[in-house]
Design a protein around this nucleic acid. Structure first.
Lengths: 212, 212, 212, 212
DNA sequence: CATGAATGAGCCTTCATTCAT
DNA sequence: TATGAATGAAGGCTCATTCAT
């Protein structure tokens, strides 16, 4: 699970700490903007304004508009990874899996705008940047695969690689579904109920995979 | 489940059958194009060319570029509905549900480009058109809810409304996931294997929802 | 005052009487249309529709869109000339002048839309057609010059050529002013009052030109 | 005679003095261009070129092509007002009226292109802008009404409101006529002669309005 | 003669990017 | 470093005109 090299967004500014500050401004402004109008409909002028400075300055910290999308995607994944890292307590019990599912879904609920942006706009990235982002998604699947595998002994079941993958995939995808269709799901579900039912579904799937 | 009025894309051409023909050309051309560059990056000139005629002619059959996206979305949903209508043999057995899942997944496999476009670009539609498309997605969920409910007696199980919804939703969303991530899934799965395992997962979920 | 050759608008239709009918349809439709949106904003499709047939047919009777404007201008001037011809009773009295003024102003009141179109849009004609129209305007001035000259003996005054011209010009221009600014004038004047006061003004101008 | 609020043409440029400079460039370029081809036939690219910069820059100072026409109209009226303000010496003599007429006609002679454009193209403006321009024309009429009224006592004559209006209107309209038909008038008149004869005509009209 | 679908030049406008200050 | 005016390629769309039926 070797960490891929981050794609470096070039700047003409030297002061590293300033770069950090400005980019945070860019990302925060852009997330709000993209949420509202999407990447393509947002202009660089608007991005600059949302970030709190002029276009001239914006272009001191990015090279192309696409860099902003990359910056946003990257920032979101960093947040996700960091959040998920906190759960991984390595006890190897079902509760750990349950907890991971819960944390992941709650994270998505909190950051649903960001998730939506990422999945809707990723395609607009360059091939290179796009694969970097997709890879991050697969890391997430792999993360859940790990947690699931760890919990199998305590559940006294054996699953094929494929079945583990399918379950991990289920978790990740249903999480995304909540982000995308939140407004529709909310008519029937609170996030807590959704987590509860999804967890039941996932566990029963796990337990009875081989039945039929 | 009253059918919503179709949003009519205005034309300046009078010959109805010609409209049908040209729009099919537009949709087919556009799907290929959007697949490659996305809706925003595709120009109207390119769309016209892909359809096989001039921009002038393109604009005889649409009013705005957005209409093309709407046309594509609409076309896809029509196909899905038609496909699913064919299986609905109303036997009320599990086999019917299995068949429906299979048909749906295979349809998605065949039309994964179209599906991907729809979900990636829907957000670019006008509010009105966007909701029309989203509604169609929910129709699809409801369609599966119906099939699931029908199969419950033969399975001798009872489920809450929510549980039925969640399962139907699972089917629809995992189908979409195959469309989006086909290139990644294909490393591990053929569509047949995916259908088989998803079916197992769905059925075991159904059977054991109440277990825990 | 030799009549200039009419500029011939070419057709591909042979039947002369049909041409006459169709052109009248075109002119009538176009006047209403130009009144509302002006020449440039009116499309050929709209012109055809207003005329009561298809674009294809429209183009059987004209060669370019500009032809329509020329046809309209020509038609209006024909009407004006015909109307003014009716007054010229050659009695050589002041009453004849008064009557001519009255007829001219009333004509303009009745055809103010047509006049407005002509003066607003003439500039859009080709150089050739434009001069043809302008010449017609000068014919009108000359017409009044003739009437004024005729009335001078009975008024026992002598005027220079220039003064006659200036007065004739005054009549023509103030008539146009009524057409253009009808909506504003109407707040203060009925056409009858306007005619009365203008007549007074013109005659006193005539009588006392040499005073000061 | 409360000054109407100017319709503000929006800019994305902040430097006010630069806006002033660029707009003058736009107006000057546009006048030459419109003179030659009219508003509708002139393209925005041509306007930009005539102004001396790129379209991009043009659109930094206007919002739509129509704005250019509005800018031109506005500029002309400002000049007229300024010019007439300079004479208004409030002596209340006939000479003041004569001087005003002379100044107005000379101004029109100098700016006949601009005037022609204004009257030919005003109709192409939006309803709002069109009325703003028309109002300015009426301000001009009112301005002359004021000067005429002031001169009445010294002429020992009394006129009705309508007669004053008619005379003021005569001045304004005959001024415009000079602008429109300059090329034709010049065959017979120099501007000085035209002013002289028009002045005579106007004054004799004034003096003998009530005679008959 | 009449029709109307097809064409494509060309228009207005936007916006990512640059660069002098 | 920060600014924002300048640039022009490119995009969406219109509409006069043609021509096969």
């Amino acid at each position: 699970m070797a960490e891929k090299e981050k794609i470096v967004v070039q700047t003409s500014v030297k002061d590293e700490s300033l770069i950090e500050i400005r980019r945070l401004q860019i990302v925060n402004g852009a997330v709000n903007l993209f949420k509202e109008k999407g990447f393509h409909r947002a202009t660089t002028r608007e991005i600059a304004k949302a970030a709190g400075f002029s276009i001239g300055t914006l272009y001191e910290y990015i090279r192309t508009k696409e860099d902003v999308l990359y910056l946003v995607s990257d920032h979101i994944y960093d947040k996700v990874k960091q959040q998920l890292a906190e759960i991984n307590s390595d006890t190897g019990t079902v509760d750990e899996l349950k907890e991971a599912i819960k944390q992941y879904f709650c994270l998505i609920d909190r950051m649903s705008d960001e998730f939506t942006i990422m999945y809707q706009e990723t395609k607009s990235l360059s091939k290179e940047a796009m694969h970097y982002v997709f890879d991050k998604e697969f890391e997430m699947v792999r993360l859940f695969e790990g947690i699931i595998k760890n919990s199998l002994p305590s559940l006294r079941i054996e699953l094929t690689e494929k079945e583990v993958f399918l379950t991990a995939n289920h978790i990740v995808v249903q999480g995304q579904a909540w982000a995308f269709r939140k407004w529709a799901f909310k008519k029937r579900y609170t996030i807590e109920e959704y987590v509860e039912d999804q967890t039941k579904l996932i566990l029963s799937g796990l337990l009875h995979f081989q039945d039929k």
